[in-house]
């Protein structure tokens, strides 16, 4: 029964939403192009950056890396700017996971759930769908960014050059490497963090409705931009703040542990709340 539900969700929540996937691809393809424009400036002011070839990982990292820890001092001018491309990336992927389960619940989902006789099957299927959907959108963004890089002459590879740190407002004297980083583990942890957030959003949607859950998560993410602390989990969604890349970054080991617990709690508590939810009188908002 579970596999039938999952098949239904993947078909109607992902495959039939192919237009959304195309939008994801095109959106991040265009956003990655701006890194090429920045490179043209760096060629003039920092030619030493180009001792090593630009890679495709640079393009993705520059687009979705977030920003380093801001250092705001009273009485001193601040040039810190909000990482809007990171915000677009994260909020878009969370938006892609937001409404399908609850829109479906207003239609055929309710009938299927009643016929199956189990709310848990419906819930678990939606959790797996959220995981797959997040990973697919993450991969699409990664691929689009890499495709953009390849078209603009970047070398294919997962080694990112440390000059990107300048673009991401990271402190250059605190980087873990002065040449290149291996981004495989970084991108993997980034994807895992996004999956955990998508599940948290799904569970929160059951409790406070999807609209408010999206709002609450957006506000929580924005709060983490100025405050680098493990309490603000949005920091784990910013590769520019990982301890793998910067000496004063957030611990990825600790983050992994937190997110494993977050995923388990989201599935369990979300499922328990869903079992007591009024699915007949509810609205999709």
């Amino acid at each position: 029964m579970f596999y039938k539900f999952l098949h239904h969700d993947l078909t109607y929540g992902l495959l039939l939403h192919w237009k959304r996937c195309i939008v994801t691809f095109l959106m991040f393809f265009c956003l990655s192009f701006s890194h090429f424009l920045t490179l043209r400036i760096y060629e003039l002011i920092h030619p030493e950056f180009f001792d090593a070839p630009v890679t495709t990982a640079d393009y993705f990292f520059a687009m979705a890396g977030g920003c380093g820890q801001p250092e705001i001092l009273d009485g001193a001018p601040s040039f810190f700017s909000i990482p809007t491309s990171w915000a677009v990336f994260v909020l878009w992927i969370l938006f892609a996971c937001l409404y399908y389960p609850f829109v479906e619940l207003q239609g055929i989902g309710k009938q299927l759930m009643v016929l199956s006789g189990s709310r848990w099957i419906w819930w678990l299927s939606k959790c797996v769908w959220a995981v797959v959907n997040t990973m697919v959108h993450f991969l699409l963004a990664l691929l689009s960014s890499m495709a953009c890089g390849l078209l603009l002459g970047a070398k294919p590879g997962m080694q990112a050059n440390s000059y990107v740190a300048l673009e991401l407002q990271m402190r250059m004297d605190r980087l873990t490497s002065t040449t290149t980083w291996d981004m495989g583990a970084v991108f993997l942890f980034f994807c895992f963090s996004l999956v955990a957030f998508a599940l948290m959003q799904l569970a929160l949607s059951v409790v406070i409705r999807p609209v408010f859950s999206y709002l609450a998560i957006s506000a929580y993410l924005f709060a983490g931009i100025y405050l680098q602390s493990p309490c603000f989990l949005g920091n784990y969604l910013m590769p520019a703040r990982y301890d793998l890349l910067t000496g004063t970054g957030v611990s990825t080991g600790q983050g992994l542990l937190i997110f494993v617990w977050l995923i388990a709690l989201s599935i369990l508590l979300g499922g328990l709340c869903f079992c007591h939810m009024d699915v007949l009188g509810g609205t999709s908002d």
Binding site: C30, L31, S34, T84, S85, V88, W92, F95, Y99
Partner: peptide, 23 residues
């Protein structure tokens, strides 16, 4: 959901693109 959030995401997207393009 699209009516509520899509314009917001578009605004963020345009802001990000413009900021990066004029850096």
């Amino acid at each position: 959901f699209a009516a509520l959030f899509a314009p917001y995401l578009v605004l963020l997207y345009l802001t990000a693109t413009a900021e990066k393009a004029q850096v």
